Computed example of a mutant assay.
Amino acid sequence: MQKELLVTGSSGFFGSALINRALKRGWFVKGTARHSLGILSEQFGVDINYLDLSKDTISIPKANYIVHCATANEIKSLDLFKSIDSTIKGTKKLIEYCLENRFEHFIYISTVGIYGRELNGEINENSPFQANSNYALNHYYAEKICERYASRNFKVTIIRLSNVYGIPSVSTVDRNTLVPICFVVNLLRKGVVELNSSGLQQRDFINQIEASDIVLNSLNNQKSNFDIINASSGKSYSIIEIAKIACQEYSKFSGKVGKITSMPDKNNYENNYSFSSKAYKSKDKNLEYLSINETISELFKIYNALI
């Protein structure tokens, strides 16, 4: 009997990418969202069901596995109290529902942001938590809630995503604040990338499909009742490097020269770190994911038609 996967946050950037990847890998998939159910069902070709975790009672389709992506992003987390309702209280409500209805495995999509804003040295799954944003704080406490419910018959996995990049999978994705999408949009609108810092800060960037593969592989490979996995690529770029790549691709696309403006940090801070991860990565050596350059090139084609 084929096992079923349910993904919350189907209308979002990563949730939608995960559904598409799971379908391509042969999974039987269902999804949930708060809006655009008909549009999403049509674009995915699967059932998308209504779920609002702020409601007193919830109901979702039965499945063997669930990946929970429907939490407050870094922008929505600026409102601490609303984000607590969706990320912390909502996750508790959902995991209790899944336990009561005999789901086998619960995956919570978290963030490497819980290690701090500017990372240094080697970061692994046991590195200490540094709460310097509402976003990190929400995910940390949601992780702790998830850990409490892991048992012999109910596996729980925390996937801490690094900076995910890629091409929006469905029309409902509205994340123009993400790097490098925000750079592409600003170049098309104004011919300039405006940085709110020096841009020297290093970030690990992972393709959305590679991150999705790590999530799906963990469903097949996890042996323990509870696990934490950093989903990182090991490829670091400074923000200003990404901005320069965006300008290069903008020049190829439009024949125009893009500009970069930046603001000084205290001491022009530049961090240096690496991730140590126990992620279950694909063993297919022929599998290649779109690079940052290739992704930005495609983003110019997509967003030029929208702006």
Rank of each mutant, 00 (worst) to 15 (best):
L40Y: 02
S86E: 10
D56C: 05
H139G: 05
Y97F: 15
N134T: 10
L53K: 02
R102T: 13
G31N: 05
H35M: 11
A142C: 09
G113P: 04
K55C: 11
E100W: 01
S133R: 06
I123H: 07
E96V: 08
I123C: 01
Y97D: 01
F129D: 10
A63E: 07
K89G: 00
S83G: 04
I109F: 06
L99C: 11
F129G: 02
Y135R: 04
L40Q: 01
K93G: 11
D79Y: 08
S83Y: 01
R148I: 13
I123F: 05
F129N: 13
A70H: 01
L40D: 01
L40H: 03
L40I: 10
Y135T: 04
F44A: 05
H139C: 09
S86V: 15
Q43S: 13
E104R: 09
F106V: 09
I75Q: 13
I88W: 02
P61T: 10
K144Y: 09
G90Q: 00
A63W: 03
G90K: 07
N73R: 06
P61N: 03
R34N: 12
T57G: 08
T111V: 02
N120A: 08
F28S: 14
A136I: 09
H35G: 09
N73A: 04
V67D: 00
K92C: 12
P61S: 09
H105G: 09
P128A: 10
L137S: 12
C146L: 05
N138T: 11
S54D: 14
A33C: 07
A33Q: 07
